[in-house]
Write a protein that binds this DNA or RNA. Structure first.
Lengths: 341, 341
DNA sequence: CTGTTAGCGCGTTCAC
DNA sequence: GTGAACGCGCTAACAG
C-alpha cells in the first residue's frame, strides 16, 4: 500500500517527529539526518496525505474579501459566489469575511484596506480600483505579510501576488475579431458603449477591440465611445440616441455593465437591417436577450471560478506554496444562444 | 467551533457508535434513539467531515476506463488526462486502470466490457460506440451493480447512469449560428466534412448545424457532407478536391477529427476571397491553424473536465450519493485566435 | 538536535 | 440495542 510517515521513519531509522520536520521544512534536523529521510522518501515514493495533514493541523484560513456594493448583476453574482464559498467554509477550512464598499469610492476602499491590516487574516481578495491611494494601501497590506489577490479588476503596478480575472485586452480583441467577421465587407458604423474610460478594464477592452477590428479590410467606422457609467438608465438613453442618430449603424459593442438599459433600448427600436450586438457578462438579462435575438454574443468571466481560484491562491500563498499560474488562468467564455449553459 | 460527532453524542445522550449508525443509515438503532440523534444533528448544524471519514475508512475506489486506441490528437489528449488522474490516484483515493481497444471495433469493446464485469471495480467510464451489442454489454455491466458513465460519446438508450460529454447537437447549432452570422447576406456554398455519418455524435452535429443555419435568410447552399473517417490523409484529399471543384465556396464546417488534413489542404490553396472555417477540438494543429488564420473558430470539449467529471460521478454513484447533474455539464468552448488559453 | 505521546474527526471491530 | 476502545496518516506539544 501507499507508504506513510511510519514507513519513512523506520526506513530512515528516525522517529516520526524528525520525518515531520523534514517534510515541513522546519529547523532542528542535522543535514545528514535530513538526507537519510529524503532518501527514504525518494525510495518509497512517499506522497503525503494532505487530508490527514489538514485534519491534524486543524488549521483554518481566515480570508477577507473586499467587494463593491454595486447594483449590477455581475457584482451581485460575484457576491453570491463568495457567499457560497463562505458557506462551504467548514469543509474547506476557510473562514471568509466579506466587506462591501461603495463602488468607485477610492477613500472607502483605502479605509477598508487599512482595516484589514489590523485583523489577523490569512489572505485578502479585493476588487481593485485603478488609483494611486489604493495602490499604496495595498502595498501596506502586503508589507504586513498578508497575501493579496486582486479580483476581477487588476492593479498590476501594485504589490499584489496574483490577479484572478480575465485578460481584458484579449476579451476586447475577441469581440473585435468576431465583429470583424460578422461585418466583413460591409460599410457602416459601429457603436461603442463603455462604463467609464477611467476604469482600466474598460480601456483595455476598447483597445483590444480596435486593434482586432483593424486587421479586417472593411469600411467600418467606430463611433466615439459613450460612457454609460454601468447604469442601466444612462445606457438606455445613450443607446436610444445612438440608434436614432446613426441609420448606418451595423453593430454595437457594449463593454461595460448596465446592459439592462442596452437591451431595453434594443427591444424598443424596430430596424429592418440586423444589428450585431456583443456584450459582456452572462446574467439573467443578457441571457434572455441572447435567446430573444437582441444580443448576438456575450463574453463572460465566470465569477465562481474567479472566487474559487482566488481562495486557492490565497491558501497556497499562506502556506508558502507556489501556484501554477497557468492553471489559475480565468478563461474568456463566449456564449451564443446556442451554447448557453 | 464546528460541531463533531462527539458533540452530537453528548447532546443526544448516546455514544459515538450510535451516532455513526444513524449517520450511515445502518441498522441497530431504535426509532426513538434515532430521532434524538437526528434532532441533535439538526440543532447543532452538524456537517460530517468527509476528509476525516475517508481517512478512517481508508477506502479506495478502483475505477476502470475503456478508451479507443485512436491516433488522433483528441483521443491522445483524453488518454493523457486519464493518465494524469491515474497519477493522482493516491491523493484522490482512486485506483484507475485503463483498457484501450481498437477504434470503432464493436467486438473488441464488447469483450472489454465483459471483462470488466469479472473485476471488482467500483465504476466504469467508457467511450461508447453506437451499436446494439455494445448497448447489451453495457446493460450486463450495469446489472452487475457497477456504476457506468459514458465518456465523450454517449449511448442514451443504454442503462448508463451518466454521460460526461458535450451536447453535440448544441455544438452543431453553435457552429451553424456562427457561420450564419459570418456569411449573412452572401450567396455561395458551404462544405461539410464529417468523420462518419454512422457515428451518432457526427450526425447530431450535422443536424444542429443545418437547423441553426436555416434560421438565417441567406442564399447559402450546403454541399452534401464528405466522410473523412477522421483520417488526415483522406480529409486532405477530400478538402483539396472540394476547394478545386467549388469556386463559390464560402465556408467549411469540419465536425470530425483528422483536421491535420484539413489544415494542410487549406494552406496549400491560395484563394482571393476569405473562407470561413469552423472545426472541432483544440489541438496543437488546430491551435496553430487558428493563429495562422487558416481556421476561424474551434469548438472544443475539455477532455480534462470530462475525465475529472466522470471520476466524480462514479465515486458519488459508488457511494450511493446523488450528483448535481447541472454541475457536471460539460461546456462547449469556443476559441478564436484571440481567446486561446 | 531527536524521540514520545496525545490527539484531529470519524469508522469499525468487539464486547456488554 | 448500545458503548468503549483502537486506528487511519499526520502534526504538535512536550520531554529528553
Amino acid at each position: 500500500m501507499k507508504p506513510t510517515v511510519h514507513d519513512i521513519a523506520s526506513e530512515a531509522g528516525v522517529s516520526l517527529a524528525t520525518v515531520d520536520r523534514v517534510l515541513n521544512g522546519r529547523p532542528g534536523v542535522r543535514a545528514p539526518t535530513r538526507e537519510r529521510v529524503l532518501k527514504a522518501i525518494e525510495k518509497l515514493g512517499f506522497v503525503r496525505d494532505v487530508a490527514a495533514a489538514n485534519l491534524a493541523k486543524g488549521r483554518v484560513y481566515p480570508l477577507t474579501f473586499i467587494v463593491p456594493s454595486n447594483d449590477n448583476s455581475f457584482m451581485a453574482a460575484l457576491r453570491a459566489e463568495i457567499a457560497a464559498q463562505q458557506a462551504r467554509g467548514p469543509l474547506e477550512r476557510t473562514a471568509i469575511s466579506v466587506t462591501t464598499v461603495p463602488a468607485f469610492d477610492v477613500e472607502a476602499l483605502v479605509a477598508a484596506l487599512d482595516r484589514v491590516r489590523l485583523e489577523k487574516t490569512a489572505g485578502l481578495a479585493v476588487v481593485a480600483i485603478d488609483a494611486a491611494p489604493v495602490r499604496d494601501a495595498l502595498a501596506r497590506v502586503v508589507a504586513e505579510g498578508i497575501p493579496v489577490v486582486t479580483l476581477v479588476s487588476d492593479l498590476p503596478e501594485s504589490e499584489r501576488h496574483h490577479f484572478a480575472g480575465i485578460d481584458n485586452e484579449a476579451a476586447g480583441r475577441t469581440a473585435g475579431s468576431l465583429m470583424g467577421r460578422f461585418l466583413d465587407g460591409r460599410r457602416g458604423r459601429i457603436g461603442l458603449v463603455v462604463g467609464s474610460l477611467e476604469v482600466r478594464d474598460h480601456r483595455q477592452r476598447l483597445e483590444g477591440f480596435r486593434a482586432a477590428l483593424q486587421e479586417f479590410e472593411t469600411d467600418l467606422t467606430l463611433l466615439s465611445p459613450v460612457e454609460g457609467r454601468d447604469e442601466p438608465e444612462r445606457v438606455h438613453a445613450l443607446v436610444t440616441q445612438m440608434l436614432r442618430d446613426e441609420p448606418a449603424l451595423l453593430g454595437i459593442y457594449s463593454l461595460g455593465a448596465g446592459n439592462r438599459g442596452l437591451i431595453r433600448a434594443l427591444s424598443e427600436q424596430a430596424r429592418k437591417q440586423p444589428l450585431r450586438v456583443i456584450a459582456h457578462e452572462l446574467t439573467t438579462h443578457t441571457r434572455a436577450a441572447l435567446e430573444a435575438g437582441l444580443i448576438d454574443i456575450v463574453l463572460n468571466q465566470d465569477a465562481g471560478h474567479e472566487v474559487r481560484s482566488a481562495i486557492r491562491v490565497l491558501k497556497a500563498q499562506a502556506d508558502g506554496q507556489a501556484v501554477i499560474a497557468a492553471q489559475e488562468r480565468i478563461r474568456i467564455d463566449i456564449f451564443l444562444k446556442d451554447n448557453l449553459p
